[in-house]
């Protein structure tokens, strides 16, 4: 679901010819964050058409870009309503905006504001100067916590059909006995839950403290920990059948590593080159180990474990 603001020129408070001009994206939350950060300040807000996408992501795609900004300055008639020639553009929009080109093409000078809208009042007070801290993108525990639900939901969505399919499989193998099939499926459910907790919850939260640079490595260690917990929880269910134990020990860390790898996009310190490097070594291992875990589980099933 996307929430949009119509592109164009808006006013906050009692904006006049001398009021500052802030540029933002047509994503409603970008617009609202900006407005909320400027209580009691009169200003112009120029909303660029980013198709409802936030500044950082739209800048990466180029929709929050030089062409759109120059075009929007013209179509909104900004030059006629303000007497100065200065725009405050969020720093996270810089990947899409070439300040020197904007100046050449529109006459407006781009000043990059702080990374976070919260810092805008201090930035304005300091005569449009951002401190090093305002210029840096952090990734705090709370920020990571806020992202956890977005990691869990798709993981659970992916896990449910798998659990259902494996239930059907064990139903057939166990001679159409629903209770026995259910027993086997519980092991699967516990394993999948352990993987999701390790990869989609623990890894994001414990990111700075888990060993390794690759997200997959971090997820692997979190998964190993959870695999041991899962074994303690379900071991009695299958009387310590060796194949089942191995299945859990192999697949939980592998799935956790895979889920952890998917957190690279939500994090704020990964690079495309780095993710390519990580995927080259980690993805085959993750797929291979998960397949091995599945094969072991099926073997345990056939052995009646």
């Amino acid at each position: 679901m996307r929430y949009r603001v119509d592109p164009g020129l808006y006013t906050i408070g009692d904006a006049g010819p001398d009021s500052p001009v802030f540029v933002t994206a047509s994503y409603k939350m970008s617009f609202d964050l900006l407005r909320k950060a400027l209580p009691g300040i009169s200003a112009w807000v120029l909303v660029l058409d980013t198709q409802g996408i936030n500044v950082w992501c739209a800048a990466g795609k180029g929709t929050f870009g030089t062409d759109e900004l120059v075009g929007r300055i013209q179509s909104s008639g900004l030059a006629d309503v303000v007497s100065h020639r200065r725009l405050i553009v969020p720093q996270l929009g810089a990947p899409g905006i070439a300040a020197h080109e904007v100046r050449k093409r529109s006459g407006f000078q781009v000043v990059y504001g702080p990374v976070r809208a919260d810092d805008l009042p201090a930035f304005l007070k300091d005569g449009l100067k951002a401190t090093g801290r305002m210029r840096t993108k952090h990734f705090s525990f709370m920020e990571r916590l806020a992202l956890v639900p977005m990691e869990i939901v798709p993981a659970v969505k992916g896990a449910l059909p798998v659990a259902a399919a494996l239930f059907v499989l064990s139903f057939f193998v166990s001679g159409f006995s629903a209770p026995r099939a259910l027993g086997r499926t519980i092991v699967v459910l516990v394993s999948l839950s352990a993987s999701i907790i390790a990869g989609a919850v623990l890894t994001p939260l414990l990111l700075p403290w888990l060993p390794g640079r690759a997200f997959s490595t971090k997820g692997f260690y979190a998964g190993l920990l959870l695999a041991v917990c899962a074994l303690l929880l379900t071991g009695t269910l299958y009387h310590s059948n060796m194949a089942m134990v191995l299945a859990q020990l192999v697949s939980i860390p592998a799935l956790a590593a895979y889920l952890a790898m998917n957190f690279t996009g939500a994090s704020t310190f990964t690079s495309l080159s780095g993710v390519q490097k990580e995927m080259r070594f980690a993805l085959p291992l993750e797929i291979g180990a998960t397949a091995a875990g599945l094969a072991l589980w099926i073997a345990a099933l056939l052995m009646g474990g």
């Binding site: 994503y27 970008s30 996270l92 809208a117 806020a146 996009g265 939500a266 080159s273 990580e278």
Partner: peptide, 26 residues
């Protein structure tokens, strides 16, 4: 640097990217 977008691309799925607030680019 987004693994899920790269996997989606490998699978030929349209990349679903980036709906988040501006304080945590994602």
């Amino acid at each position: 640097g987004c693994a899920s977008a790269m996997i989606d691309k490998m699978l030929g799925r349209k990349k679903a990217c980036c709906v988040d607030d501006d304080s945590s680019p994602s």
